[in-house]
């Protein structure tokens, strides 16, 4: 069976034998985008977090059939070296990653948070950012999330000035 979905702005049609295959494996193995990580397969750690129509989704627990016709964004599509997302800029400025494995999931969760709550308080962060990091980068992440909010708000205000 074929499923059509937009991944990082590009329309993709993938053939699947099982429509319940987790979106994670379609993204990683069929489309070759390895930035979205497998951590637990049980929607517990958040390493596989990506966006479906702008909402944070744990893709290990999201059947590909539900992505039909939807916009999927992965860490590769969030931003890149030429055009980084404010979250990525902040992550670099605060030198957040250690081993780095959980970080794409955290950055995707953070980007989703900033879409909903542009200037999150510590409490907003505590409630919404509930992925698991084993290296213990939470301390820098919190700083980076606040910084990303500032960067994004500045970027938006600059854009509105230009208009």
């Amino acid at each position: 069976m074929e499923i059509s979905l937009t991944v990082n702005g590009v329309l993709k049609t993938v053939a699947v034998t099982d429509v319940n295959t987790p979106l994670l494996w379609i993204v990683r193995d069929t489309l070759g985008l390895k930035g979205t990580k497998f951590g637990c397969g049980k929607a517990a750690c958040g390493a596989c977090t990506l966006h479906v129509d702008g909402e944070a989704v744990r893709s290990c627990s999201f059947p590909v059939k539900f992505a039909e016709g939807k916009e999927v964004t992965t860490i590769e599509g969030l931003g890149n070296r030429d055009n980084p997302h404010p979250v990525q800029q902040a992550w670099i400025a605060e030198i957040v990653p250690q081993c780095g494995y959980c970080q794409p999931g955290f950055m995707m969760a953070t980007a989703a948070l900033l879409n909903k709550v542009p200037n999150p308080t510590d409490e907003d962060i505590d409630k919404n950012i509930i992925n698991v990091c084993r290296c213990g980068t939470y301390y820098r992440m919190r700083k980076a999330i606040h910084k990303a909010a500032d960067l994004q708000l500045n970027r938006e205000s600059n854009e509105s000035k230009e208009l």
Binding site: L33, K34, K37, P84, I92
Partner: peptide, 19 residues
């Protein structure tokens, strides 16, 4: 100095054993 693997880890490069 910033980590040398910072960009790879922020942009989701396929650098891990799982990848």
């Amino acid at each position: 100095v910033p980590r040398v693997d910072l960009d790879a880890k922020v942009y989701g490069d396929p650098i891990f054993g799982m990848d």
